[in-house]
Design a binder for these strands. Structure first.
Length: 305
DNA sequence: CGACGGGACGC
DNA sequence: CGACGGGACGC
């Protein structure tokens, strides 16, 4: 994923200057090179987002996973880092680059983007990003998405990481994920940006804060991640998976039909236990079996156009 | 005709 | 259980 060493940063308030944002990253232990706050082309008003440049893609990705969802230092009421990969090229290539992602459920409240990322990164080197979905108050919704660079790792993670223990307090639940459409339907209830922006003009400038602290250095202390996560990652539960040997040509036909109908059903997970009761056979890879038999359960067939 | 792949500044 | 707030490229 080439992303030109930069992140997109949203949820900016009009009084957040470039120097304030740089300082906020510094206080969180990150070293962005530059920040460019984008402005409305015509009015010159801050557009509410910025591009944050780093020396390398790795630094940018690292900062994204470590800071996304965390409070921005110096904001009150709290505003949280809202970070994403960004680049002209990435946007241009979005359509051509297929994305292979899994939905991860049963995340306990202590799981953040970074710990989720690290757990998967120990096993899957094509991993691109990991994201825990938070509500408006910054609390986890208990699920997230992990994106891979190739289908093999995505499929492998579907069963290898299902039921995984060692991240948070609950066994992970893994399902196929349908990538969110890049350009969603434009919201029709777009309120006038000026009115909301004016409400923030309270005279408070977020620009005088610069207090490099050991925030990130303490991450391991408060996250309880280091050590425990790495150790657990090495112990991959050998969940028995179903052998799928006796599938029919009719099922393969059903897959093709589903493709053509472009049905998308992303709310169902593979139920390994149920499958195991049907096909009792440990040791064999579910997906290898599925692939060789050309059979796919309808629930997990999805289409990428 | 027919939908790829080239191209990439530096603040 | 659950499916990514929305906002995305200036000069």
């Amino acid at each position: 994923m080439s992303m030109q060493c930069q992140l997109w940063m949203g949820s900016l308030e009009p009084n957040m200057t470039e120097s304030f944002i740089v300082a906020a990253f510094h206080r969180m232990g990150q070293r962005p090179l530059t920040v460019k706050v984008m402005r409305n082309k015509f009015t010159g008003e801050p557009a509410g987002y910025a591009f944050v440049h780093f020396q390398t893609d790795e630094e940018a990705i690292d900062a994204m996973h470590k800071l996304n969802g965390k409070p921005i230092p110096g904001t009150f009421p709290v505003v949280r880092f809202r970070l994403n990969t960004a680049s002209r090229e990435a946007r241009a290539n979005m359509q051509s680059e297929r994305e292979f992602s899994v939905w991860v459920g049963d995340l306990s409240s202590d799981v953040d983007d970074y710990s989720l990322y690290r757990i998967f990164a120990t096993k899957y080197n094509s991993i691109k990003t990991a994201k825990v979905i938070l509500d408006s108050s910054g609390y986890t919704k208990g699920y997230g998405f992990v994106r891979f660079g190739n289908e093999e790792e995505q499929r492998n993670a579907l069963y290898a990481m299902n039921g995984y223990t060692g991240l948070g307090t609950k066994p992970l639940k893994i399902c196929t994920a349908v990538p969110k459409p890049k350009s969603a339907i434009p919201t029709q209830n777009q309120s006038a940006p000026n009115s909301s922006a004016a409400a923030y003009n309270s005279g408070t400038e977020y620009n005088q804060y610069y207090d490099p602290s050991a925030y990130w250095q303490n991450y391991s202390a408060w996250s309880g991640y280091y050590g425990q996560g790495e150790q657990a990652a090495a112990v991959v539960p050998t969940t028995p998976v179903a052998e799928v040997a006796a599938q029919t040509a009719a099922a393969a036909a059903a897959k093709t039909q589903s493709d053509e109908l472009a049905l998308v059903e992303h709310k169902k997970c593979i139920d390994i236990d149920e499958m195991n009761q049907e096909f009792l056979q440990p040791e064999l890879s579910l997906w290898d079996g599925l692939e060789s038999s050309q059979w796919f359960p309808n629930e997990i067939v999805e289409i990428h156009c």
